[in-house]
Amino acid sequence: MSGVNTGSRGAISAEDLSMSETREVMLDIQGLEVHFETRRGIARAVNDVDLQLYKGERFGLVGESGSGKTTMILALLRMIKTPGFIAGGRAVFDDGTDLLRLSPEEVRENRLRRVAMVPQGAMNSLNPVMRIGQQITLTMREHGEEGTKVEFQDRVAQLLDQVGLKPEVAQLYPHELSGGMKQRACIAQAISLSPRLILADEPTSALDVVVQRQIMQTLRQLQLQLDATVLLVGHDMGLMAQFAERVGIMYGGKLVEVGAVADVFRNPQHPYTQLLISSIPSFERRGTFKGIPGVGLSLLDSPTGCLFHPRCPQAMERCSRDEPGLTQLGPGQHVSCLLYEKDESHATSA
């Protein structure tokens, strides 16, 4: 077992381990494909991803830059811009709505009401010429919410209170807030219509660790209150270990391993995950800085078979030939690697 560093941010509690299997699926993503058309061919930014998100869970999506994490989030929001497009797949909510088959107007209504986004760069994510209260009110009104000025003032005050901001903040402009306060205001806006799924794309990347911890706590608290599902995207492994219940590891647009956060961190199965986990610096094991050999793959010129095989220390001969499918290992832990595929005929099915 490789040493997992979760820094000083706390360990994984026992209750986190017992979840996953008994829960009901809220969003079922099947075969999601996002392609980008380039002059040199098609780049598969999200490559046949299957993922079930449970109701009220915190799921972390990890991967290096360009692995398709953010693209996946944008696909769920239907915000992929040309030259990118969603080339296939389904993303079905438990009420039967398929996010990938909504009309443009449904897409608009669906945002925030069902799927909300907490942005990456909160520093610049609020309109600089509008007061915080005005922005939140405008956003709610655009979704058909009705009420008097006073009613909206009350709702805004309540939302601000939920994210730990004083009601006076409603009267301020974004430039009068600190980075953490801006992110809180963005979260208040995101939860204004009680969404079922909150997509958080590295919500704390621009903040210092103290504020980072507070924001993550707020997000967790709200997630419990709303019984919403949070899909957290990032590459801060410590943050993931602390926040998420389950994690998914992405490489080259593919989901290579999914499992409970403790299983994946303590007992990673996919060679890429193993290297990723062991590359986390640790106080206990100070020494040479370990990385993953080779460079991230080019989506335009991707290898045959398993996408990771050119960098994989455990690569076998068939890795350059066969594409691995998802293999179930333990309860809730899946991995996409030929090392675990005993049956060769099953291998090419994916």
């Binding site: 897409v107 945002r111 990456q120 520093m123 963005c186």
Partner: peptide, 15 residues
């Protein structure tokens, strides 16, 4: 960024 977030929040294009 605020344009992107406004879009993600489902505001009308005209707004």
């Amino acid at each position: 960024d605020y344009i992107a977030l406004a879009e993600a929040n489902g505001l009308r294009n005209r707004t």
